[in-house]
Write a protein that binds this DNA or RNA. Structure first.
Lengths: 195, 195
DNA sequence: TTCATAAACGGACTGCGGTCCGTTATGTTT
DNA sequence: AAACATAACGGACCGCAGTCCGTTTATGAA
């Protein structure tokens, strides 16, 4: 179990990081500054969170879990719904994918800079963090239900345009409204719009 | 025009970088090391290429231009072919997109680490470099010919799974063969496989 | 209460990307 | 050929992410 001082420092660091990120932007805040603001030594944030990306992940954790909860056990179309039947061709799998894409977009666009920090700090970071594995697994399962040949690979391809890096660039070039419409169109084309 | 010493240093730096990258991998080679190996001061590579990503772009330039040439004026299906007719619904636009995807995959998988360096150094780097604008423009034009509602946004979405970061992660998880098949499948779904 | 142990701490340290500015080379003009 | 203007140079310098290790502190056992 976690020692008392460790727990105290963890929350102090998270609070300081949250405050400084909101005030100056994620990129403009150094780990030194966070440690100083939290009243801890420079090494502590690294021991606690690994690196700056890990800190971002920890800050995103709460919102993330909420979305994951809605997916796992929330209402349709995002979640499985109250339907007692086991998941299968009966439920509208395509609708669940569409709902996921929209919900994820909402989540991501609301925390773009934090998400980008969590995904782009080290090479391949995005694909290693737990949350990506979750989104990937969820997507792959649904694609499997739809009969895709290689759901794992398909899920990666489906998630690629949802990367923070991509969203940030496209949103700033085309605006979020066009981005949302394009994401919906894209999914319709992949899943078959009418089906 | 470029001064003689500048030209000399530029090629010395490119040669040194190419050699060191091949020997130790892109990430393991510092700019200091490149400058030292090229026999120039530490500031020179930065003045010449801006940053490490710019150096990577310069090294990719030749291969890149070759592919761009084949697209602009090469044979079908990648290029417009010898067809004297103006581009339009007559030529097989979907086939050109498929050919582009395959050719780009070959190019990218052959230089993954260099490409990743060029795309992920600074936030949004990928979307600013000239070559991305080229691939995007080409793709958008073809999507326009196919009657897509928002070809610009569609092109971004189509290129997202071709990002170096994405290719690297998926290739190391699923292998290049599965990756290639998945990319082809993905495009088939987006364009309509039979059409 | 004391003690032992292991966890946590903190700040000095390293290496890197990138900048700055006084110095030097280049090529042009007279 | 000499002087001039300016482009290019080079290395000291900065800030940051991340590491290391001697020191401190929490905690459970004696």
């Amino acid at each position: 179990m976690e020692r008392a001082d460790a727990a105290r420092n963890r929350s102090a660091i998270l609070a300081a990081a949250s405050r400084l990120f909101a005030a100056h932007g994620v990129d403009a805040v150094s780990m030194d500054a966070i440690a100083a603001a939290a009243g801890v030594g420079k090494g502590t944030p690294f021991r606690r969170f690994g690196d700056k990306a890990g800190l971002a992940v920890a800050l995103l954790d709460e919102r993330e879990r909420e979305l994951q909860g809605r997916i796992l056990s929330g209402e349709a179309p995002l979640g499985p719904g109250t339907d007692a039947a086991p998941p299968g061709p009966g439920t509208d799998t395509a609708a669940r994918l569409r709902a996921f894409s929209e919900a994820y977009l909402d989540y991501a666009l609301g925390h773009l800079d934090l998400l980008r920090m969590s995904e782009t700090s080290s090479p391949g970071a995005r694909y290693r963090i737990g949350s990506y594995r979750f989104w990937h697994r969820h997507t792959a399962i649904l694609l499997g239900e739809l009969g895709w040949v290689d759901p794992d690979a398909g899920a990666h391809a489906l998630l690629a345009p949802l990367a923070a890096e991509h969203l940030g660039a496209v949103a700033s070039e085309l605006g979020t409204e066009r981005l949302r419409r394009a994401a919906a169109d894209h999914l319709d084309r992949l899943l078959g719009s009418g089906t």
